[in-house]
Write a protein that binds this DNA or RNA. Structure first.
Lengths: 102, 102
DNA sequence: CATACATATGAACATATGCTCATATATAGT
DNA sequence: ACTATATATGAGCATATGTTCATATGTATG
């Protein structure tokens, strides 16, 4: 195929796509997102269920928040996190399905 | 939600899924896979089109080969690479579509 | 078999990543 | 205001990752 016949991706697209997949490439974040896809959770609950430190969970939530993959609401001292990007959850679930059926 | 009511992922599933996404999280590999999804390419062609060194391309192809995301056939001195995992290409294209339409 | 060409591979290096530890901030109750 | 609880954040550290450079391997041809 000749150079000019290629369909090239815009560098902005490539950056966006790699960022989406980078988020999903870490086991910890997969567990957090999968958990949040099932129920709204506060931070300590996530830490307990996933057997992680509060700090580690909070750092990851900070990242997920910045990328707008999760949102939260406050109730007193407690923050309840939930998923905020259905498309990313869809990619995750597809990969899970594919992995489980092969 | 109580602990016993959660649907947990098997650690094997988590590892598989994170590995799929890890492959797709690097801009270079995205470009290579997207290129190979359009046409079968030899190594030097990939290097030229993507403006990368032959060595860098070869290292990445080695990884993609080990994960069985690409395959190749030999023709003389030349190796022609192509995609060998439609599901991964599907995930990639979905993420591209999503990125381009937002 | 010597040479040229295509590709692969190992070592080294710089950067990125995810965790822990310590501490800061925010909110509620006394 | 003091204390307890929930969460966030910064620094430091160990490991992982992607590239380059040099060199090796494999294949065709004179």
């Amino acid at each position: 195929m000749k150079m000019e016949d290629h369909s090239f991706l815009k560098s902005e697209t490539i950056e966006n796509v790699s960022q989406i997949f980078k988020v999903l490439s870490d086991p910890t974040r997969i567990k957090i997102l999968y958990l949040l896809s099932q129920e709204e959770c506060n931070v300590n609950h996530i830490a307990e269920v996933l057997e992680m430190s509060q700090s580690a969970v909070s750092h990851q939530l900070s990242m997920l928040r910045n990328l707008r993959l999760v949102k939260y609401r406050r109730e007193g001292k407690t923050l309840f996190y939930s998923c905020d990007d259905e498309h990313v959850i869809s990619l995750l679930k597809q990969a899970i399905d594919h992995s489980e059926h092969h």
